[in-house]
């Protein structure tokens, strides 16, 4: 059999076919958030909205808990979760902190610690 399995990377879930299969309904729901009416419908009644997309109880609970790592584990894709995050007004630093166990300020400081000062211009 062709060897196409990706080796594990710590702290990372490769969004592959297996994950995409598990997470399809959830990601489909998040894809719907490209539309303002859909965002408002979700905010008005999240339970009904999740039911409409036939989310599993595990997905529903992870979303109620706002447990982003659990959503990833269940098959969420970060590109669609970003649309969900937008509904709550969370930017990439907010969700970066939520996923890596840091406050937003700590997460920003972590980014800066690896970057600023390494600017080149020429």
């Amino acid at each position: 059999m062709t060897d196409y399995k990706m080796r594990p990377v710590e702290g990372t879930i490769h969004f592959d076919g297996a994950q995409a299969t598990k997470g399809f309904n959830f990601n489909k729901m998040c894809f719907s958030f490209n539309n303002e009416e859909a965002r408002q419908a979700f905010l008005a009644d999240p339970e009904a909205y999740m039911e409409r997309f036939k989310l599993s109880e595990e997905f529903k609970q992870a979303l109620r808990d706002k447990d982003l790592n659990k959503l990833l584990e269940l098959g969420g894709s970060i590109y669609y979760m970003a649309k969900l995050a937008g509904i709550f007004g969370w930017n990439m630093q907010v969700i970066g902190g939520m996923q890596s166990g840091r406050t937003t300020e700590e997460f920003q400081a972590y980014l800066e610690s690896q970057g600023r000062g390494k600017t080149t211009n020429g």
Partner: peptide
Amino acid sequence: HQLDGPRAGILNAEFDN
């Protein structure tokens, strides 16, 4: 860049350059 998971936030300026 990495947006997802516990490893979110990793950067590598040396590799980028």
